[in-house]
Design a protein around this nucleic acid. Structure first.
Lengths: 234, 234, 234, 234
DNA sequence: CATGAATGAGTGTTCATTCAT
DNA sequence: TATGAATGAACACTCATTCAT
């Protein structure tokens, strides 16, 4: 998997404090997650974030250009982290199926381990203005590229059907993961997100249709009755 | 298809004007679409919407509880319309595959025919507060239910694999459609959304994996080379 | 005297409230004079002005574009008033000397009758940004034009020396009046500004120099000893 | 000319750094002129002044009490310089007319040679708070005193009319010079300020009125037509 | 039903000043 | 002396909502 790496240096975007207290930077970001997860982007006053971080209001502006910059930096850091992990883990894998499972697992694992961060990325991040959405898009790009690479290499390996519309394939992968995480967040993060990995990968790989003779996975041994029992999720 | 209908009476939610000038209600809703599509939710002042609708500011509050209610009513109306159409069209179909294709087609057709509405539902609707998102969920319910029905009946018919996680299946369907429409909107609505129906249904039904001997669709005759050419979309 | 009249319609500049409560407009302006005279421009919070005017903060913005607009409107109104009075009074006079005396008298009378307004125009008005100073210049123009007209007509009548640099003559007239009013304001408005009219006009007309045989005025009978006694002013 | 000298020791006012690096003190003052002339008082951040002076922000406070103190020190230094020059030059003159011409010439020469300084003293200096204006008054005192001395000695010599109101005479002199410099600054410092000396002195000495038989100066040979041509100034 | 003038709560951001090093 | 990171007070302005007419 070729994960593009220009976002690894996820600090570049700051452009304000080149060499200030890194712990303070982290504290503000963490405080922002806490406050935003609780109150949403628009109701998360800078003064509350500052207080939660243990700094003065003005200090926030030594580390971030403005309030939106905090949000963008949050996403940049978390996506950057996921992408970096992906580079490390997926590099060792050769099979597209394994790569897909790994990236889904990674995504669920990362967001599943931090419900507040997930709340911010899945819900509050979307409350911002159009111009910020553009920047968000550019931050997500490396992740999208990683998904595209998986599809592309899978086709090359003969593991993925060459006839799928690749862009749509990518959107299916991301859309399914995104919808899954959002549902998990909005229902209170009550179950383990990673538990869904196999089911998600199964449906992504094999679709809904009962074809004839396609390769069955371990998941297939579950029958419809069992399926109906899974009710942890709302 | 069992589309739950309690939201069809989409006027119930108003609770303000039981039977006022219906044309004025529509005018405000239409004005809201225009203004929000252009400026986003937060920059769409009530006064601008009122002016665009040809009514006074105060009049808006005779028809809607508040600004968010306009947004919610927009969604209620458009989803209600789609659900109603779905009831009509899917009722005649017996095959789950056909139903899936029909609902995807219908969704793309409705939003594809109204880019401004799509802009509002895909982008601006998400800028609202968390508490409103709950209401949005309840509005979407009938549509989700329709998708669930398709999955459920598909399994009963033996068309859909009984082993798929049904909730995840539904999220895959909706997530893929949603992501597809969002991408279309955010790149300027430059191509025909309905042109993607077949490719979307193909990947939903058969997944990514090149299994052995699953039933191929007409789409399958496209080869990788052709796939690479599809560049209408950004 | 040809006083250019485009500023008579001193309400045009508002451009916000075309037909609102005129009494409210006046109340805000008067409140602004009170508050600014006491605290200066920068310390005159909109909320204090609003409270003093008996309106809500937001109402101020129904009548004025922003805080600077209040200041500019103040000047526009007071200078406009002086210019309008000048048109009425100077129109009846034919002699440039009389016109000069009249306009000095008028200026001192108007500002002398309203020390708080004078405090604002002489002190606080100058605390604003460069861009506003430009607008202030355009508001003062008609007054400068009136002074120019007096000089010009005086020369035509043979009353004013044709060799004086007209622009400098105007600046002397205005500079002397301005300096006189400022001194009066800054020392607490303790004496009657209009009492200085004759002495000011005398020095403007005849200068400092003891020429030989120039026409003496009544003021000339005051001798140096008396002059030294005038100590009301700081 | 009796120029009171207690402000010559313009360092007294500092009260902070008694004998620090004089070059640094100058550098900060010069940087302040540059930055303020460009951006105005309120937009001239201490940090920009410090950077322009090549020192740290905090260092500024080792030399100046606060931001206003920089402005006041600027005026103190420049007026002090003018007053000192005046003492040197006017001491040699015996005639009040010559003294007046010399001090006008000196004032125009000093400010005319430094448009940025003039911009600060004529425009930005006036943007300060009312309490500071009092201190400005005390700084200007020696200059006012010099003007008063000229008037006083002129009367004693029989050169200046004993009947002029002396305080008003002084205000006319200063007001005319001030207005002239301000106009020059605000129109872009495009002509030579010193070129106006003769015209200014002429009108100060002889006023506007065409009396009979007052002593004419060389300037008088200019006729009205020529006067009209002087259009260097805006 | 309709109006639209009036309301007033709510907050991101700047920057002069301080002080620990 | 000098630094510059940290501080935190201060406030104009917007706009959803109301209600007297």
């Amino acid at each position: 998997m070729m994960i593009h790496s220009h976002l690894d240096s996820h600090e570049e975007g700051r452009g304000i404090a080149t060499k200030r207290d890194e712990a303070k930077y982290d504290a503000i970001l963490q405080a922002a997650i806490e406050v935003m997860a609780e109150s949403g982007y628009h109701h998360a006053q800078i003064s509350r974030i500052a207080r939660a971080a243990g700094v003065a209001d003005g200090t926030v502006y030594l580390y971030f250009k403005n309030k939106e910059d905090i949000l963008v930096s949050l996403l940049r850091r978390s996506i950057g982290h996921i992408v970096a992990l992906g580079q490390a883990r997926l590099g060792k894998l050769t099979n597209a199926e394994e790569k897909l499972r790994e990236i889904v697992s990674l995504y669920f694992e990362q967001l599943g381990a931090n419900p507040k961060l997930a709340m911010v990325t899945q819900v509050h991040l979307r409350q911002v203005d159009a111009n910020i959405r553009r920047e968000i898009g550019s931050i997500m790009r490396p992740f999208y590229d990683a998904l595209d690479d998986i599809v592309q290499s899978g086709i090359a390996e003969g593991v993925i059907r060459p006839t799928v519309n690749r862009r749509i394939a990518r959107r299916m992968i991301f859309g399914t993961m995104d919808e899954t995480v959002s549902a998990w967040v909005l229902t209170g993060s009550k179950y383990r997100l990673t538990d869904l990995t196999d089911d998600v990968v199964d449906v992504l790989l094999h679709g809904l249709s009962r074809g004839t003779g396609y390769g069955s996975t371990g998941a297939d041994v579950q029958d419809a009755a069992q399926n109906a029992e899974r009710s942890v999720e709302a």
